[in-house]
Design a protein around this nucleic acid. Structure first.
Length: 414
RNA sequence: GUGAGUGUAGUUCAGCGGUUAGAGCACUGGAUUGUGGUUCCAGGUGUCGGGGGUUCGAAUCCCCUCACUCACCCCA
């Protein structure tokens, strides 16, 4: 019986897992310097955690969720993104009551039933951050700075950070009317998807990729011109701070997020060389979401998520750092094999990466294995060595060989 | 959900109507006794993705199916 992994999932092996660990450890270090604390939330949630927050009519909710009924008849969903669960936990545990500002980061798998392609999987890993409790643009600026610093530390180049503001529930309806008015006479020329968007969420027409729709919106009004005073001041303050912090950005008024909960600031980091799925990180404000979950009315918040697989594919070519075994013990007789096992046990106990072979192969082939494993040293033990209590230790780089007392091996390597 | 491309050894691929289907890499062993990377020699494996059809003859042509990949859509 032949088994394959589920479509859109992947198995990750050793040189690559090191890249994953590098990304994860770098991220947590950077985030903690900004006062973010790790939070771990479940992979499954009640389905309405997502339907209510992400939006009933979004693609994610309409056709991409892994939803099932558990044995108690509850509708359960594998999380398609991280923000909703974190907000749920934030409200459920009344974290807003413990301190005025709460900042969290998390990492873990997300699930979306989509057709896989380059940079897109059905199970994919996100590293995300969420900050609650202030609508001050300093928080927005700080978060973009944090993202920029992380991307720098990861050695990523040729990135474009696009920012936009999509207003708030006060001013957005007005803009939506303006957009509807603009496209009213062009309705017939819009793609079928955008004709639907015209009714549901005309903002999405602004970031449709269909060439015809792109053309049609050339003269369309920009969101940025229809922000109310508060939103406009907020956005201008943010861009001013980004300049002061030397965070490079480009304003893209067509950057509309696909999740309904976003307000005001939205942003996306685009990388070249990733294929069609080129966003490595994206996020924005969601000032109304906490209230939506039953938290305090005024609990502004924002966050972003990084696509780890995409990040890995950007840096795995250049990532070098590889651990190597300190010692390979080659054994040439039954007694020597026993000695090798004992010595390797002691060394490993002291934290020294030691390798031995598990069959009685020729010295030549054991040397070959040591070389394959990239061991720094090889200790060669045979009958003679056991008798005299010392064995040749070969430095695999310099080929220098010295005799080492067998009872001194452990201290030699620690 | 839509479209395109690709499925041949562990892997990367060649073969594209005609005997027993090949190569590189990888793996294992050897090149005067117990010393790696280079070189040389030797060794094995394939339901040619699966099913059906055309043909004297199919890995090769046709149909169906499955899988993978890329793109659309959408997004991290």
């Amino acid at each position: 019986m032949n088994h394959r992994g589920v479509k859109g999932t992947q198995d990750i092996f050793t040189p690559e897992v090191e890249v994953w660990r590098f990304i994860e450890s770098t991220a947590s270090r950077v985030f903690e310097n900004f006062g973010f604390q790790e939070i771990r939330v479940p992979i499954i949630e009640h389905t309405d955690v997502f339907t209510r927050s992400i939006g009933e009519t979004t693609d994610i909710v309409e056709k991409e969720m892994y939803t099932f009924q558990d044995k108690g008849g509850r509708s359960i969903t594998l999380r398609p993104e991280g923000t909703a669960p974190v907000v749920r936990a934030f409200v459920q545990h009344s974290l807003y009551a413990k301190r005025p500002i709460n900042k969290f980061y998390y990492t873990g798998p997300m699930f979306r039933y989509e057709r896989p392609q380059a940079g897109r999987y059905r199970q994919f890993q996100q590293i995300g951050v969420e900050a609650f409790g202030s609508d001050d643009p300093r928080l927005d600026a700080e978060m973009l700075l944090m993202l920029k610093l992380l991307l720098e530390k990861l050695g990523l180049k040729d990135l474009d950070c696009q920012v936009n503001s999509i207003g708030c529930p006060e001013c957005r309806p007005g803009y939506m009317d303006v957009v509807r008015a603009y496209f009213h006479d062009l309705y017939g020329e819009l793609c079928s998807e955008c004709q639907r968007r015209f009714e549901i969420n005309p903002l999405r027409i602004m970031d449709c990729k269909a060439p015809k729709c792109r053309e049609l919106r050339v003269g369309a009004p920009s969101v940025l011109d229809y922000l109310d005073n508060d939103c406009s001041r907020h956005f201008n303050a943010l861009t001013g701070m980004l300049q002061a912090l030397e965070v490079p950005y480009t304003v893209n008024p067509n950057l509309i997020r696909g999740l309904d909960y976003y307000t005001r600031t939205t942003f996306e980091v685009i990388a070249s060389g990733l294929g069609a799925q080129n966003a490595v990180a994206a996020g924005g404000r969601y000032d109304g979401l906490v209230a939506e979950f039953g938290g305090p009315e005024k609990t502004p918040a924002l966050g972003f998520a990084i696509g780890v697989e995409r990040m890995v594919s950007l840096i795995k070519e250049t990532y070098k750092h590889r651990r190597r075994p300190a010692l390979f013990i080659a054994a040439l007789s039954k007694e020597a094999e026993k000695m090798a096992l004992i010595l390797s046990g002691r060394l490993r106990g002291k934290g020294v990466w030691t390798e031995i072979s598990y069959d009685s192969a020729s010295l030549k082939s054991q040397m070959r294995r040591a070389d394959k494993l990239n061991a720094e040293y090889v200790l060669i033990i045979g009958e003679e060595e056991l008798k005299r209590g010392s064995a040749p230790l070969r430095n695999m780089n310099t080929k220098e060989q010295v005799d080492l007392w067998l009872d001194k091996v452990v201290e030699q390597f620690t």
